[in-house]
Design a protein around this nucleic acid. Structure first.
Length: 208
DNA sequence: AACTCGGGGCA
DNA sequence: TGCCCAGAGTT
């Protein structure tokens, strides 16, 4: 059993019900929620989208909002000018090019303004169940600490993880690493004393 | 590779 | 008060 497999099996046992913590009921809602989640906490994103999606559920309805109204609706998430502008522009493209639907390919998704590789992977895996590995700050940090990957380039980390993890586990592994990063392997003051991976971890703060 | 956007939560 | 939060685009 490889080290990666050992780590993955422990993560699987530790977080048996790991899942996407952004609330959504359609691919469109997940796309918007993920665009909003940049450098914001999922808790705040859910608070904002709960109100937003109550009255606006489609690209068409979003376009009834002025840029200023959109900015006000999402202001507390930060980076709100870029997010508001990109979301409205994306809604326009969804209507013009995709019949108001959210496309299910990396090429089409990353062509949308404000949608990068990470957001596209989240939509592909969580809305369309297409195997993908979304590398965010948690996945980057945790996989580096555990020795599952190395480097600061998210695209290269994504390739390393896809090479060492079975395709059938990509979506779950992504969630395991994020849940672990949030609950134990935090950016600041990681709780190594509570970590089930500590014996296997090259970066553990515990004495050998 | 570094810089900018950015309000909010938390130690 | 400083650092981080389920990033993306530009220089």
């Amino acid at each position: 059993m490889s080290k990666a497999n050992s780590i993955l099996s422990i993560l699987a046992a530790t977080y048996p019900d790991a899942h996407c913590e952004l609330n959504f009921s359609t691919p469109f809602e997940l796309l918007i929620a993920t665009m909003l989640s940049a450098q914001a906490t999922d808790k705040k994103v859910n608070q904002v989208t709960e109100k937003l999606f109550r009255n606006y559920k489609t690209p068409e309805s979003f376009l009834t909002l002025s840029l200023k109204k959109m900015e006000e609706a999402i202001k507390e998430l930060g980076l709100y000018r870029n997010k508001a502008k990109n979301i409205l522009a994306t809604c326009q493209i969804l209507i013009e090019k995709y019949n108001g639907e959210v496309p299910d390919s990396m090429e089409a998704l990353t062509q949308l303004p404000g949608v990068g590789r990470k957001t596209a992977n989240v939509v592909l895996s969580n809305a369309y169940n297409i195997p993908a590995f979304a590398v965010d700050t948690h996945v980057l940090r945790v996989s580096n600490r555990l020795g599952l990957a190395s480097g600061t380039n998210p695209d290269l980390i994504e390739k390393q993880l896809m090479n060492s993890i079975p395709r059938s586990q990509w979506i779950q592994a992504h969630h395991w690493l994020i849940w672990h990063g949030r609950r134990i392997c935090a950016a600041r003051n990681p709780k190594c004393s509570e970590c089930p991976l500590s014996p296997l971890c090259p970066s553990t703060l515990l004495p050998a």
